[in-house]
Design a protein around this nucleic acid. Structure first.
Lengths: 233, 233
DNA sequence: AAAAAAGAAACTGTCGACAGTTGATTTGTC
DNA sequence: GACAAATCAACTGTCGACAGTTTCTTTTTT
């Protein structure tokens, strides 16, 4: 009946998906693609092509890209399209700088509001981290690591801070995914959280701040270095 | 030729605009409408109606609403539409809490990086504030007040912080517009910035932090009270 | 007269289309 | 052989349409 269109020159980077909740799922696909390197920093993400590969129309694809843009992971140039944000070293440091500022603030708030049940949840989360560490499940560990920090922000009780934290997390997810593949010693990662939980248990704000600052500085070094390495590679 | 459609029950809240850069301008119209009370907190903003009133298609209207959603000014419920975010007292405090945290951090960074030219720009801005205060131009003063604080964040040099500041500003703009109409003494507003600029001139981070904290606490009280009053009225 | 059911209006999610742009490719010129 | 002009494919911004839902209104029932 119809002639097939000529094969696109590059192989498709995405596979099709069903409707409803399209936007979220498209966005997720894109984040994933960035995280595992199918899309590299600076690369163009044409909404037309994206939609075609996913088997949807352009509307939800565009919306998904705008969503990621609002989180900083994608940048757009009018009439020119969307591109994977190519963070430079300065920007990565900015993100961590902001995160440190936010997370420390939230953590202090959390200390004041925390119930014993909350504390137990945090401890359980750290335990999970250790378990995954022993199992060498680096990929899952990254997810649970993130969940721990998010929990801390959530316990702070400030919805706006949580909102921003999630934005930052999306931006970091690309880098984090890379880090997940490259982390040498998962057991060590888990251990770096022990001082945090100790400070929390002691309900010592100043100590928690200091530990958190150090913890995040380490993460910053790690992620920045690896992200930049991946950008160049 | 064609029968006109029956008049919409409520009078239109927007007037038409020309294409190109549509999204930004639609978003701006909506923010304005919220700011001056044509749209009240909690009210529905149907993309279909919005588009009709502005004489555009639904695509850019929807995109504008999503933009505002990403900044927190609009909330959406799937298949149900967009609504003006009806902040409660807790949320307003959260916003200011976050702002305080961010702006103080940025201001400290700014102190370290500031050149004499930067300082002069800040001083000029404060001078403008005083001038508008003497002229009793409350509305313009609000704009310049905001510009001063944004400048401070910008001088901090962290692009991410500036990005978030702008998001917060959009959320506050509704409240700020109301405040602009209700501020009793514009001259006083200008004066509250003098301690800030003094601390900046002295390049005293701790002092600036203290002054800024107090300054923002005042603003918080003011805005929260007036926003809530306007929500109920 | 209040509650439930049925019907109508309006709106959202998604789609495909078209005009005008942009970036890449080819052709033509010095 | 390098460079400018012309050509072309692909893409963006915007639009109108349709199907399925939600919301409002009217009608029916108890």
């Amino acid at each position: 009946m119809f002639e097939k269109f000529p094969e696109p020159s590059d192989p498709p980077k995405f596979q099709a998906l069903q409707p409803d909740d399209l936007v979220t799922r498209i966005a997720d696909q894109v984040v994933r693609a960035i995280g595992d390197g199918r899309l590299r920093p600076g690369e163009k993400v044409a909404e037309a092509k994206l939609a075609r590969e996913l088997g949807t129309s352009r509307a939800p694809a565009r919306e998904a890209l705008r969503l990621l843009e609002s989180q900083g992971l994608i940048v757009s140039h009018p009439r020119r399209g969307f591109f994977v944000h190519a963070y430079d070293s300065k920007e990565m440091h900015d993100i961590y700088d902001l995160r440190e500022c936010l997370e420390i603030h939230a953590a202090r708030l959390a200390l004041k509001r925390m119930t014993d049940a909350d504390l137990a949840r945090l401890e359980a989360q750290i335990e999970t981290l250790h378990r995954l560490g022993r199992a060498g499940a680096a990929q899952e560990q990254v997810v649970e690591d993130y969940a721990f920090h998010r929990m801390l922000c959530e316990l702070g009780g400030n919805g706006q801070i949580l909102r921003i934290f999630d934005q930052l997390a999306t931006q970091l997810r690309a880098g984090i995914a890379i880090v997940g593949r490259l982390y040498d010693d998962p057991a060590k990662i888990a251990a770096t959280h022990d001082p945090l939980i100790a400070a929390i248990r002691a309900r010592d704000g100043d100590r928690l701040e200091a530990e958190l600052r150090e913890h995040l500085e380490d993460a910053r070094e790690h992620v920045v270095a690896l992200y930049l390495a991946a950008s160049v590679a």
